[in-house]
Every structure is written in C-alpha cells, then in structure tokens.
Amino acid sequence: MKDFRVLIVDDEVDFLETIVKRLKRRKVDTTGIDSGIKALELLEKEPFDVVILDVRMPGMDGIETLKEMKKKRPLMEVIMLTGHASVESGVQGMHYGAFDYVMKPADIDELLGKIHEAYERKALHENRIREKLTI
C-alpha cells in the first residue's frame, strides 16, 4: 500500500502524544494537533488521507469539525474517536460522513486496521472519480 498521511485531532495532549508516537513506531506518517480549528487551518496547507477525530473537544467539537472537514476535503476519510459513547453523536457522525467510530482507549492494532480500511476507501473513491473523468 502506498504511503499515506494521518492526522490525529484530540485536545487531551497526553493521549495525542502517545498515539502519534505509537503510530509512528509502526511506520505510519502521523501528525498530531490539539483542536478542531487548528486542524482545519492545517488542512488548508497540507493534505491528509485519514483523520482520527475526537468527538468531545472544547471550542469546536468533533461533529462540527467533521462537517467542516467534509466540506473542505470530501474524499478524506474521518474516523471518530469517542470516550463517552454517545449514541446521538454516533448517529450524527455517521450521517455526516464519518468512516467509523473507535472507542477510547483505542487498541492500537485495531485502530491501525481501521486506518488502513479508511485509506483503502479513499483510494477506491479517487479511482472511481478518475475513471469517470476519463470516460
């Protein structure tokens, strides 16, 4: 599989640093950032393939960030990360185009599996658009 870039968005800095470190150790090109607004600013400058996004964040929450992200980069896949398991936010997240939900504390191998699936989907999506444009 081609190299891809992952962005982790979570206001809990300890959790953020740990997960970035663990993914990097598994040779995944990972960047961490601690707020939704900063993440959106970063997306203006750099492309990412998969985003791991915390649902509950102060300021701009996960669902709002997801909506803005999907507007900006509709092909980028977003995996929601949740600690408190709210069904309402789950329903909303899936409705606004999230790829999946992962419960905290996330098992790193499970998360990695989901990242790969999400990236596969993005690649499929891009291929389909490419095919449509060439026909």
Binding site: T82, H84, A85, S86, V87, G90, D100, Y101, V102, M103
Partner: peptide, 10 residues
C-alpha cells in the same frame, strides 16, 4: 459489534 459497543453504555 463496533456499533453495539457504541450504543451499549447509554
């Protein structure tokens, strides 16, 4: 199962 776990706590 992933979705069931999301609903389970509530």
């Amino acid at each position: 199962e992933d979705m069931a776990r999301l609903v389970e706590k509530e």
